[in-house]
Nucleic acid binder design. Structure first.
Length: 551
RNA sequence: GGCUCCAUGGUCAAGCGGUCAAGACACCGCCCUUUCACGGCGGUAACCCGGGUUCGAUUCCCGGUGGAGUCACCA
């Protein structure tokens, strides 16, 4: 078989040679040790936490080493394109603070290694495919879907491994004439790799390959033996081939991807070898798991829409909190570092792949929430109010207008109890914050909690009546509290909790119960910041009104 | 089913041949406090099983078991 002749027959329009691309995309001129990473999403419009998790590693590795972090759109699957998906991806990542140095952007492409949309790189891939055909390392395959299904069924009934390889590779050795005849009949074809891998031998004779994974250390597995499709009938490459060509030509040094890619690693290794290139350092990250029916399960795009990035946006999680959470599950020593450096910037943490976990991490909302509290408590009220307003604008327009009417009122509210050395950590995410402070707004004020058990209706009324009678909005905090004590004593509640604890039989309760009654009358709930401070913000009129309503 | 990865408390996770097996979240208790929080202190709770190697295995090796992933002209 004259391979050159076949190559020209198959790809007459390809005139460039691989060497041309090597010079168009030369080695990058970067400082020693600089890492080049990439994010390669397929534009289905759906990004979830797992994508962000991986993207974070890419970003940290690149920027920590003064390297390059770029965005490449892997749109080789024409069936799964979604309009506006690229924009959605970029803006979503930007929201969480991830910026690309190169690649696809809102305003087109930036960088010398483009195009960065795989759909626009057809000629490049085909040039390398043509070269493989010239060398006899790849061949056209005309099998239809039905034929392929037939092969698989036969393999299944024979209990042989499924796939296109060895004797099952029907079109591996088609003659030039046969190929030409099929081409003349306009038959559709794909290009397959002619794998050099072994398969029909004893288990112990299987050739193994060892790849040093950046996270997992040495990985040993059987070499690839499948004649995988590298170019689809549409002339577009499969992921495998596009990955190898692009990451070589774009001079990627580290490929960070999920563990679901582990099984196809041998394919990629063979492809790199066949093309005569060295592969980048692979870092296979652990997958984000979810607990379901007592079992862990990989986060799934279809089943877990609540774990899409949009979920965190619409709930109003602060991007900084999500980053902080991701960092703590990404690097096991991050939490420790954070405790030692409470005010340091996240970027000053020395991120390493060695400290990454390689077993599946269960997504833990409790932990995220806890971290979020710590992050939000450090954000000044003015900034927090901007964040809240921005969230409301996008997700709760009716609340947005309400909040905007009195912005300084909002800031006072958000500042409550958050100053001093023991600030309250009441806030978790925007939606929750609004619910937490909703009693400041009449239209959202609800009475959710009831009086403490040891205070009966009658006493509650007496307490509130006395409170209203003696209420003076000008009282300072001490004066105000003295009055509460008097009311407590007058109704046989201990003025000090300790007195009550010493002699529980002498009292109906203690001054705390009295406070709780007032709190519930004013705020509708048993949990809130300091009552006196709230009253100062609420104003005299509204305070009295809420108390009166309960009489 | 083949191949691959993984295996320490409920969850995340230190550990890398000798430890009373860290820490964080959650939970419980106590303290502080006018209440609610915050904070402080303390507590419950773990090395999947079986063989080796070794003076000694959570740690190394082998075999089970369990969980996960993957076997497309999807990425």
């Amino acid at each position: 078989m004259d391979h050159q002749q076949l190559a020209d027959l198959l790809f007459p329009h390809i005139l460039k040679a691989p060497a041309d691309y090597e010079s168009i995309y030369p080695e990058r001129n970067l400082p020693e040790g600089a890492k080049v990473t990439r994010l390669g999403p397929s534009p289905t419009g759906f990004i979830h936490l797992g994508n962000l998790y991986g993207a974070f590693v890419d970003e940290r590795l690149a920027h920590q080493s003064k390297g390059i972090f770029y965005l490449r759109i892997e749109d080789t699957d024409d069936k799964r394109q979604v309009d506006g998906a690229v924009e959605a991806i970029i803006s979503s990542l930007d929201f969480f603070g991830l910026q690309f140095d190169e690649g696809a952007t809102m305003d087109g492409e930036v960088g010398q290694y483009g195009p960065y949309h795989q759909s626009q790189r057809g000629e490049i891939y085909q040039t390398f495919v043509k070269q493989l055909i010239e060398k006899g390392m790849a061949y056209p395959c005309f099998c239809t879907e039905e034929e392929l299904n037939g092969i698989r069924e036969e393999q299944e009934s024979l209990k042989e491994n499924p796939g296109y390889y060895g004797k099952w590779a029907k079109h591996r050795d088609l003659s030039f004439e046969e190929i030409k005849k099929r081409l003349d009949q306009d038959e559709k074809f794909v290009i397959r790799l002619r794998s050099k891998g072994t398969h029909d031998c004893a288990e112990e004779d299987l050739k193994m390959i060892t790849v040093e994974d950046g996270i997992r250390g040495p990985l040993t597995m059987p070499e690839n033996h499948q004649d995988v499709v590298i170019l689809k009938a549409t002339g577009i490459p499969t992921y495998h081939f596009a990955h190898v060509v692009d990451d070589h030509l774009m001079r990627t040094t580290h490929v960070i991807r999920g563990a679901e890619w582990l099984p196809s690693l041998p394919i990629h290794v063979e492809l790199f070898e066949t093309l005569g290139w060295t592969h980048p350092i692979y870092c296979h990250t652990a997958q984000l798991m979810k607990m379901e029916d007592g079992n862990k399960r990989k986060l799934s795009k279809r089943k877990d829409p609540e774990l899409s990035l949009d979920y965190y946006r619409s709930e109003g999680y602060h991007p900084e909190a999500v980053r902080e959470y991701l960092l703590t599950i990404l690097n096991s020593n991050y939490e420790e570092w954070r405790i030692a450096n409470p005010d340091a910037s996240q970027n000053s943490f020395d991120f390493t792949v060695e400290k990454m976990s390689n077993s599946g991490t269960l997504f833990d909302l409790d932990k995220l929430n806890d971290i979020s509290k710590d992050v939000l408590v450090k954000i000044p009220a003015a900034e927090l109010s901007t964040f809240l307003l921005d969230w409301a604008d996008h997700h709760k327009p009716e609340i947005a207008s309400l909040l905007k009417e009195q912005q300084s009122y909002l800031e006072q509210i958000l500042d409550l109890g958050r100053t001093g050395d023991k600030p309250r950590k009441d806030f978790v995410y925007a939606k929750q914050i609004f619910e937490f402070i909703s009693y400041f707004y009449d239209s959202y004020f609800v009475r959710a909690d009831s009086y403490p058990e040891n205070v009966n209706e009658e006493d509650a009324k007496k307490i509130l009546e006395a409170y209203l009678d003696t209420y003076n909005h000008q009282d300072d905090q001490a004066q105000w509290f003295d009055k509460i004590r008097e009311i407590a004593t007058a109704n046989n509640y201990a003025a000090k909790p300790k007195d009550f604890k010493k002699n529980p039989d002498l009292y109906k309760g203690h001054v705390g119960d009295v406070s709780t009654v007032i709190r519930i009358a004013l705020m509708g709930r048993a949990m809130s910041p300091d009552i006196w401070e709230i009253q100062q913000i609420l104003g005299e009129e509204k305070t009295k009104e809420r108390i009166s309503q309960m009489l």
